[in-house]
Structures are given as C-alpha cells and as structure tokens.
Amino acid sequence: MAKVIDGKTFARRLRNYITAQIAGLKEYQGEPPGLATVLVGSDPASEVYVRNKAKQTVDAGMVSFQYSLDAGTSEAELLQLIAELNADPRVHGILLQLPLPLHISTERVINAIEPAKDVDGFHISNVGLLGSGQKALVPCTPLGCMMMLRGQLGSLKGMHAVVIGRSNIVGKPMAQLLLADDCTVTIAHRHTLDLPNLCRQADILVVAVGRAEMVKSDWIKPGATVIDVGINRVEREGTARLVGDVDFKTVAVVADAITPVPGGVGPMTIACLLFNTWTAFCRRNGLPEPDENAFSLVDGIGVLNEFQRQAN
C-alpha cells in the first residue's frame, strides 16, 4: 500500500518556518510583509478561498489587504487598483483571484501586476524567467508539488516524470521545475495517443486535468510516486464529496507514494503563496532570501534546497 504524502503536515511545517522567519524581523525597521488579495464578483467558493488565504496571511505575521469588487467592475477600474497596489510600499505580493468576469481580460490584468509582486507567478516575465532557468516567482501549486516530491524522494535526477495537463497554472510550470531538477519530462494532454501506456513509464506522475478519478491503477508503474492536483466534486450515495483526478483506492495499491484529495496538494498551494510573499519581501528589502537549509519537512530531507538552488 502506498505511503500517503500528507500535504497538511508539509503545509503546517512550511507555515511555521515562515512565521518564525517573520518573527525574527524585530531588528528590521520597515513594515512587515503585506499580501493584497483582489476578488472580482461574488463566487462563494472564491470568497471562502480568499478568506482562508487572508487568515493564514495574518496568522503568519503578515498584513492582509483585501479588495472585494463588484462583478460589474470595469477592466479600467481593476487596472487602476492594480496600479495603486504596484505603487504601495506596504504591499509585497498581489494575488488576483481567478476566474475574472468575462468582460475583463485576464491576461491584460495579470500582466499589469508588477512582476516582483506577482506571487502567483503568472506574469509573462516570471513565466519567461522560469522557462530560462533564472530567478523567478514560481506558481504556487507546482512549487508545492515539487516540495512534496523532494520530501518523498530526495533527488529527482534521472527520473522519468509524466505531467498530464498543459495549463499555464500547473502543467507547463510543473514541467519546467521537473526539468530543472534533471528529470526526463513528458507532457501529456487530451490529444496524447495511448495515454495509459505512457503513464506506465512514469517514475513520477503528476495529474492536473480536472476529470474525476480518470487515472486508474493499470496506468501506474509499480513503485511510482503520484501527485494528484485535481479537485472534483462528485455525488456518491446522495452525498457530495471531493475526489481527485486519480482513483485513489486502486492506485494506492500499485504506487509507492500518493497525495490524497483533499489534504494533499491543496494545503501546500496556500502555504507556498505565503512563501512567495516572504520571498518577494526579502528581495524588495535586500534581505537574505529563505535559507535553503533552514528546515526540513519530512524525515530530515530539506525539500527547499533544490528549489532555492535552481532559483538562485
């Protein structure tokens, strides 16, 4: 039976590390790190998610700036707010909650965020820096996946990693991070031929497609590590529940390690948002960035060291 990679434990230890680092700022005379979250519209799930982010921001010792705008807010008005946040020295990170209303260009607004404050890692400058192996702010979900992979496996060098999904948010940056760790990487998508056979070649399988329990046990190489990014709401016996893109019960019999849904990748996404905000704060103020050897998350393996090495 596969080892369950506990994202909640990873996230708690990462948040504790960040909180301790911020608490050590007593000798620093400036403002504490500040994270601004911008929500346009009243989607209930997004509202809950933003509140959770704000609570964890404050709990870590940061300042939370929250902006909830009406769904009818114009693109020009949103761009004006982004410009004000870019210029605000109290704000070190800007998070734009997606999706935006259809009348607003997501691409235009994301690329209006100052790259040094783009803690989601979606700005075209950060995308380009990551792709060329330079120092960038990395999208939170792939970063969290990498931390868990390193915690489970240590070095990833030489492993064959298959990423199912090619989105700009997860699939593409995930592949770039895996390449930076010397994996052989294959990106699969809806047009990939014989997907099950391809997956059976993977030492590491990352699934981010949004199709409930699509990946079955006979897709898995015995001993593989499986990272399930999917979150899907399904009805089972009259009860709504969350499941991933992987059929957890059957795949766990074949794999060596697997992330659960919920409780796997999700908690790490928010923790990595705090990590990126802290990193942005340090860069802006000329302070040492998070120490690559400062802490360990699982069994004495420092999972930040490889990320920091390739980022620096």
Rank of each mutant, 00 (worst) to 15 (best):
Gly151Ser: 07
Cys140Lys: 03
Leu242Phe: 01
Val298Ser: 06
Val58Phe: 12
Lys8Val: 03
Ser167Pro: 02
Asp43Met: 07
Ser125Val: 13
Arg51Ser: 15
Val138Gly: 07
Leu96Arg: 09
Lys53Asp: 05
Gln134Ser: 10
Lys157Pro: 04
Ala11Ser: 05
Cys272Thr: 14
Ile18Leu: 02
Ala87Pro: 08
Glu27Lys: 06
Arg241Phe: 14
Val91Leu: 06
Gly302Met: 08
Asp59Gly: 12
Pro142Gly: 03
Gly238Trp: 12
Ala136Asp: 07
Val298Ala: 13
Asp70Gly: 11
Ile169Gly: 12
Glu306Thr: 14
Ala54Pro: 08
Gln21Met: 09
Leu79Asp: 13
Leu100Arg: 05
Gly41His: 00
Val254Asn: 00
Val127Trp: 10
Lys3Thr: 13
Val38Cys: 02
Leu242Ile: 11
Ile82Glu: 00
Val109Ser: 10
Leu193Gly: 09
Gly244Ala: 01
Gly210Leu: 06
Leu137Gln: 03
Thr73Val: 12
Val206Glu: 09
Arg166Trp: 07
Arg12Asp: 09
Ala20Ser: 10
Phe122His: 00
Ser64Leu: 06
Asp228His: 01
Lys249Asp: 10
Tyr17Glu: 01
Ala23Arg: 12
Thr106Val: 14
Gly300Ile: 03
Leu98Lys: 11
Val162Gly: 15
Ala83Pro: 11
Ala175Leu: 04
Val185Pro: 04
His189Met: 15
Leu129His: 05
His123Met: 10
